[in-house]
Amino acid sequence: MKSGNKLGGLGLLTAISASLCCITPVLALLAGTSGLASTFSWLDPLQPYFIGLTILILGLAWYKALRPVRQTDCLCETEDKKPFLQTGKFLGILTLFTALLLTFPLYAHIFYHQNNQQILLDDQAKLQKAEFKISGMTCTGCEAPIDHEINKVPGIFRTTVSYEYGNAMVEFDPAKTSVEEIESAITKTGYTVTGTKKAE
């Protein structure tokens, strides 16, 4: 079981590596250093390999943990009770934590509270729309820190950030903010605005 839990620990490390580009934005938010959000985006192309390696390592760990022990005919003393770190329960906890890390992009948005600003407009025609092309997003987990930062800017009416399209569509009150201020908010997260276009 000892070698099985060493493999479990290795599986946890590869899971952390696979999830690092998604976890960093949340850690950056909690630390108050939102500029670090895209620090590990370079790991994104390696993510499928880390996930595959994690599954392989954990599978091997469970195989070692669950394979039957060979019975011997000697009258040896029974094995002492194993420390907790060498038990199947600990390997189960490692596996659960690893699964939570690998699925992190699916629930990363819950770490960001919604900044729903109430904007009172006499005429909605005064709103402007702009599309910001953004590079550096690696998964849907990257959308939340960008959305969070944009919504801190006064005068934001509606925001839609899309990893799939690599952009942020923003409706805002031009009397309270500008395209430049919104672009600056996006840049604070560490992602790069590659182009801006005012929409009709």
Rank of each mutant, 00 (worst) to 15 (best):
T140C: 15
A199Q: 11
L36W: 13
K81C: 03
V161Q: 03
Q71R: 15
I23S: 06
A37V: 06
C74N: 11
V193E: 08
D73K: 13
Q86S: 06
I156E: 03
A199G: 02
T98N: 02
Y112D: 02
T160S: 13
D173S: 02
L106D: 13
M169P: 04
D73G: 15
F172G: 04
A61L: 05
E164Q: 15
F40Q: 07
V179N: 00
E143P: 03
G88A: 06
Y191A: 00
G88I: 00
S162Q: 11
E143W: 09
E164D: 14
L75E: 14
T189W: 07
L10W: 10
H113C: 07
N151S: 00
F104Q: 06
A199P: 06
Y112E: 04
H113M: 08
L101K: 06
A185D: 05
I146D: 04
C74V: 06
V179W: 04
F40I: 02
E171A: 13
I55Q: 08
K64S: 06
L127M: 09
A28N: 05
A108T: 05
N115Y: 00
V153T: 15
V26Q: 01
F172Y: 12
E200V: 00
T78V: 13
F97M: 14
N151C: 10
D173M: 03
Y112L: 00
V26W: 08
I93W: 00
N151E: 10
I16E: 03
I93G: 04
Q124F: 01
I134L: 06
L29T: 05
N167Y: 00
K2W: 06
G190Y: 09
S34H: 14
G88S: 06
Q128L: 15
P154T: 13
S41E: 11
I57A: 15
L56D: 00
A144F: 08
R67W: 10
K64W: 03
P145E: 04
P174H: 06
S41K: 12
K198H: 10
T160G: 10
T196E: 14
A199F: 04
L7D: 08
T189F: 11
T192H: 08
F40V: 05
E171C: 04
V26R: 05
S184P: 03
I156P: 02
A18Q: 04
S38M: 02
G9R: 04
T189G: 08
L102A: 02
P45M: 13
V193S: 12
E149H: 05
Y165W: 10
I16N: 07
G11V: 10
F104I: 08
S184E: 15
A15C: 04
Q114D: 15
I150W: 05
G88L: 01
P83T: 10
A37L: 05
A61D: 12
L106G: 11
S34L: 15
A108N: 01
G136L: 10
R67F: 09
D80S: 13
G141W: 02
L85A: 12
L20R: 12
A108M: 00
T159V: 15
L29I: 11
E149R: 11
F111N: 01
N151T: 14
K2M: 09
K197W: 07
C76W: 03
C139W: 08
L100A: 14
A18W: 08
G166P: 07
